[in-house]
Each structure stands twice: as C-alpha cells, then as structure tokens.
C-alpha cells in the first residue's frame, strides 16, 4: 500500500538547511496498521506531511498504491486514496465553518452526489448523531471535534489514513473512545493506518508494527509484540520503553 525509501526531508536552504528526516525507509501492507514513534523533533510528523503533499522539499521514493509520487503536487485520485487526521482538533477545523459545511465541501470536492444522505451516514459512522450536523466547532467538545475531523477524512472513502497524534490533545477517557472508533473503522472499511504518536501504549493498542525514530532517522522497525516484551534491539528503543512504563 505504501512504500517509502531513501526519504530525506529538509527545511530551508543552505546554510540554514535543517534535515528533518534522513534516509527513512519502511513499507506498509494493505490493511496493516503501522506506527511511527519518537520524541518531539524526531521527524515523525514530517514524514506524514511529506507523504500527504504538505511539504515539497523532499527527495527519495514514496509509492502509494503502486504509484510513484513527486513533489508536493497530488492529483484528485491521490486524495481519494490517502487522507489525514491532524493532532489538534481545535486547530484542524475552520472556526467559521459548521460541521455541515466541512463535510459537504469535502464530499463536493470528491465529486460525490447525494450529499445529504452521505453526511448523515458519515456522522453515524463516527458516532455523532444527526443533531451535530449544523453545529460550529465552538459548540463541540475536543472529542467531538476529532470525530468530525475523522468524518471529514472518511468523506473521500480513502484506503490509507494518516493519523498524526490523533489523541494526544484529548483526555484519557475521550482518547479511549477515539481509539475504539479508529479500530472499528479500520475493520469496517478495511483501512490501512499510518499513525504517528509519542505514546507507546497508544501505538501498542492500535498498530501491528512500528518504527522508532530518533533525530530524523529510523533506528528500528519492530513488531508490537516485541514492543510489549520490551525487546528493543537498540538502546534508544529500550530507553523509550522504560521511560513510558
């Protein structure tokens, strides 16, 4: 589903150039859930943004669903395959757009018809009733906002969902609800996940495999079972596991 190799991402021009990601390589199979973990500044979110086309200064190969991707330009077909959920639900919804406006715009941009029925369906999918359709973001709680953001991502009926710390801004009880929702959606829609998180327990709950990142490089790719056993091959991985116990 997703193949990344030799990925370098940088910001700025020399001499101020900062290399955010160096030589990253991993692949995610159809239907798999893959985690990217690391501390802030390790480049994990940067990888997601480069895949999504939000950063154009990168080199290497990114292959989504068998098709090579270049630069920051993506065609409509790409957005029908890949969607993203952002970290902070308070920043990822337009403050002046109602839920209805957000979802109908997403559906229209994907060229979908029958918008009324689809919006109802999407809201049900993410566990929000019809009653939420005409609310503005300031009338929603953090968890409800994140559900709307997930519904927006699902509007295009994608197959690969990029999740950028989707629960780190939420309370634990709400986090549990969202994590459950993500698990259900994956089973129902046969989605593939790439999830970025600093929380090993969250990644352990959602993912099958994960890559540990440190200072822009992937230091280790391991299975979640190995993570549970605390069996990291690298010192850094073991350190991270110990710190989050």
């Amino acid at each position: 589903m997703l193949n990344v190799s030799d990925l370098d991402v940088w910001f700025g021009d020399p001499p101020d150039r900062v290399d955010a990601v160096r030589g990253a390589a991993f692949s995610v199979a159809q239907g798999e859930s893959f985690g990217l973990v690391g501390e802030s500044g390790s480049g994990k979110s940067t990888i997601l943004r480069a895949i999504a086309g939000l950063i154009d200064s990168w080199s290497g190969q990114i292959e989504v669903d068998g098709r090579q991707i270049e630069g920051a330009r993506r065609d409509r077909g790409f957005y029908k395959t890949v969607q993203m959920v952002f970290q902070d639900p308070y920043a990822s919804l337009h403050p002046r757009h109602s839920v209805d406006a957000v979802l109908s715009e997403a559906l229209r941009l994907q060229g979908m018809g029958d918008i009324d029925r689809r919006i109802t369906r999407l809201l049900e999918d993410v566990g929000l009733g019809k009653g939420f359709r005409f609310r503005y973001p300031h009338q929603l709680s953090g968890g409800q906002r994140q559900r709307v953001a997930i519904a927006r991502a699902l509007a295009a009926e994608p197959r690969l969902l990029l999740l950028d710390e989707p629960t780190s801004a939420l309370d634990v009880s709400v986090q549990a609800e969202i994590l459950n929702l993500l698990k259900e959606l994956r089973e129902e829609h046969g989605l593939t996940y790439v999830m970025v998180s600093h929380d090993l327990a969250v990644v352990g709950h959602i993912c099958d495999r994960l890559a540990v990142m440190q200072q822009g490089e992937i230091v280790e790719i391991m299975s979640v079972d190995a993570l549970r056993r605390g069996a990291g091959e690298q010192d850094y991985t073991r350190h991270l596991i110990a710190a989050s116990q």
């Binding site: 634990v172 986090q175 709950h205």
Partner: peptide
Amino acid sequence: SQPRLDTPV
C-alpha cells in the same frame, strides 16, 4: 480507559 503496553485489550 488508558491503554497499557503490558495488558493488551
């Protein structure tokens, strides 16, 4: 409601 590494659910 917290996920835990040692006790997967």
